[in-house]
């Protein structure tokens, strides 16, 4: 077993226990069966966490801009949590992690700080083929057991959960500006441009991550917008998805049967 680098002692101990044949997982029975169906065996429930202090950045009241310091904090903290989870998975000799969830917790005792957590179930291919990604690490994905099975049937394999984030400050409008355009519903190109820029930055960064993994694409992209604790004008735009590569390209998914369910 490879010794994990920056994990607490108890984590190493827990992982050691898992090496003796016991597996734990937060997969439901259905998901468990489908992961098995896809040719994988669950190894253990893995996680990573990081409590991160988010710095301050001044915003200009009337100007839309990216808050790079906050962006960096949000990104690094998630990356740390993800890395630790990957290390746990690596310690188990896993090929990948499925069902990854990324959460942010705020505690009363830590103002301006937040805990970033990543959970998932480490899995290993039963036929012994390696599914490590281009970086030699276990793949990660936020796919459920059902989605994992379905994806494998389409001739694609997951490479990693990729993300991009951008914290953006949306300008307040000056009173005179607002007054000047009373009674007219007109486009405000500056606002359009600001929102466009913010979301595009998040998506470009996500795509850059996929590029590092030499992925052929990203599926299930979600765009989340949260104000966290910064007030309504400062928004984090987070893009998340699972990078995939094509293996065979043949879709072996059987044609679905249409049913009409009589259940309520």
């Amino acid at each position: 077993m490879t010794q994990p680098q920056d994990l607490p002692k108890d984590a190493a101990h827990r992982l050691e226990e898992l090496e003796h044949g016991l597996f734990t997982s937060d997969l439901s029975v259905n998901e468990f069966l489908l992961v098995k169906e896809a040719g994988f065996h669950p190894l253990g429930f893995v996680m990573g966490s990081s409590i991160y202090h988010i710095g301050l950045q001044t915003r200009k009241w009337g100007e839309s801009q990216e808050l790079t310091k906050l962006t960096e904090a949000m990104y690094t903290a998630r990356e740390l949590a993800m890395n630790r989870m990957e290390e746990e998975a690596q310690a188990l000799g896993a090929d990948g992690v499925v069902g990854v969830r990324l959460d942010v917790n705020y505690y009363e005792w830590g103002s301006d700080s937040a805990e970033f957590i990543a959970f998932g179930t480490a899995v290993k291919a039963e036929d012994g083929t390696s599914h490590l990604n281009a970086l030699g690490k276990p793949f990660t994905s936020d796919l459920s057991g059902q989605d994992f099975w379905t994806l494998m049937q389409t001739g694609h394999v997951p490479q990693g959960l990729v993300m991009g984030t951008c914290v953006y400050h949306i300008a307040h409008r000056k009173f005179t500006q607002a007054l000047g355009s009373v009674g007219q519903n007109v486009e405000l190109p500056n606002f359009t441009q600001a929102l466009y820029e913010a979301r595009e930055l998040a998506m470009t960064r996500m795509q850059d991550e996929a590029g590092l993994l030499k992925a052929s694409g990203i599926v299930g992209v979600r765009l989340e917008e949260k104000s966290h604790q910064w007030g309504s004008h400062t928004i984090e735009f987070l893009a998340l998805g699972t990078a995939v590569t094509k293996t065979t390209g043949t879709v072996t998914l059987p044609k679905p049967i249409t049913i009409i369910s009589l259940d309520n």
Binding site: S28, N30, E31, L33, L34, S144, Q146, V221, R222, L223, E224, E225, L238, L240, I259, L262
Partner: peptide, 25 residues
Amino acid sequence: FLRPELVLPLDDAVVTFEAQSLRGK
């Protein structure tokens, strides 16, 4: 009479295309 078939679904919830899921929760 309809004579329904019995099925054993393996999905946890009925997975349907839900546009809003694109935006996260």
